[in-house]
């Protein structure tokens, strides 16, 4: 069994009126089954209202299943005696960078989690040092969070989670409010943590470029898993992705369009390099043999 497992998971948002009568029931997750392997980088895609963020909050025990079960590292999230262990195991980074930083100084914010866990002072300092180093924010440790860019704030938030020594990080649209450079920074940081520290990553996003390097991509629509596979498998189904109102990276779309017009290209091209390696021979050139005076970095 993997580190995150959901079985027959159902979640309803229930709205009640003043007298506590049920006014409206909204099914956000509808019979979801998933098993995520330790150490994987898994991306969940879907438009707003597809249930992806609701699922993220299930993993951390912020929301509990209406029906079915979620296990984090064999702990049932409904078991209230294990809730702090669950939150420690699966850390969470949210969308709005401002609304999740508690400390008035970067390093103090990173120390907030370990303080709550009752970690001894010397150990807190060690963890804060390591976590800031891991996200590349050591130089900013004495700064006020208000002086940082959006991308830097998100990296501080990631460090804050890392300091709790989690096995898994859930990121709920961490880049939605960032500019392109901030987005790249955050994704690079998360990929490094996944590769170097072996942290399991669950990235919730609607930016397709961010999932190209994932081990596994899950597409959600209407509270259900509708696609599940490697990025290559997912991105070779361009029409299907578009039917879920998702974007395809331009390179993938170009390759798909060319293939549709009869050009001999493989399915699911993800990066520019792949496109070049396959397209250039058709022009009678080999990748890497530059002829023109131009250079692309």
């Amino acid at each position: 069994m993997g580190i995150i497992k959901a079985s027959r998971l159902i979640f309803d948002y229930i709205r009640r009126d003043e007298e506590d009568r049920i006014e409206e029931v909204n099914r956000a997750i509808d019979d979801m089954n998933v098993d995520i392997k330790k150490g994987d980088f898994v991306a969940i895609l879907g438009h707003n209202g597809s249930g992806k963020s609701t699922f993220a909050k299930q993993v951390n025990g912020i929301l509990l299943p209406t029906e079915g079960t979620v296990w984090i590292s064999d702990m049932d999230t409904s078991d209230s005696s294990r809730i702090w262990d669950i939150r420690k195991t699966a850390g969470m980074v949210f969308q709005n960078p401002d609304n999740q930083i508690i400390g008035n100084i970067v390093e103090e914010d990173v120390g907030f989690g370990p303080e709550n866990l009752g970690v001894p002072t010397e150990e807190i300092w060690k963890r804060v040092d390591e976590s800031l180093e891991a996200v590349g924010m050591t130089a900013y440790r004495m700064k006020s969070p208000n002086k940082l860019s959006g991308g830097q704030k998100q990296r501080v938030a990631i460090a804050g989670v890392m300091a709790m020594r989690p096995q898994c990080i859930v990121l709920d649209e961490p880049t939605a409010m960032l500019d392109p450079n901030g987005r790249k920074d955050v994704i690079r940081t998360v990929r490094e943590l996944n590769k170097r520290e072996g942290i399991t990553v669950l990235l919730i996003t609607h930016y397709m470029e961010e999932v190209v390097h994932a081990d596994r991509v899950i597409v959600m629509d209407d509270g259900r898993i509708v696609m599940d596979g490697t990025p290559r498998e997912i991105f070779s189904r361009v029409e299907e992705l578009k039917s879920y109102r998702l974007d395809v990276p331009q390179v993938t779309e170009l390759a798909y369009e060319l293939k549709k017009a009869g050009v001999d290209l493989p399915d699911g091209i993800l990066t520019r390099r792949e496109l070049m390696e396959n397209l250039l021979p058709l022009f009678g050139c080999r990748y890497g043999e530059r002829k023109g005076g131009e250079h692309v970095d």
């Binding site: 070049m276 250039l280 022009f283 050139c285 043999e289 530059r290 023109g292 131009e294 250079h295």
Partner: peptide, 8 residues
């Protein structure tokens, strides 16, 4: 641009 660089 990369295509052009390779002579396309």
């Amino acid at each position: 641009h990369e295509l052009r660089e390779h002579g396309a």
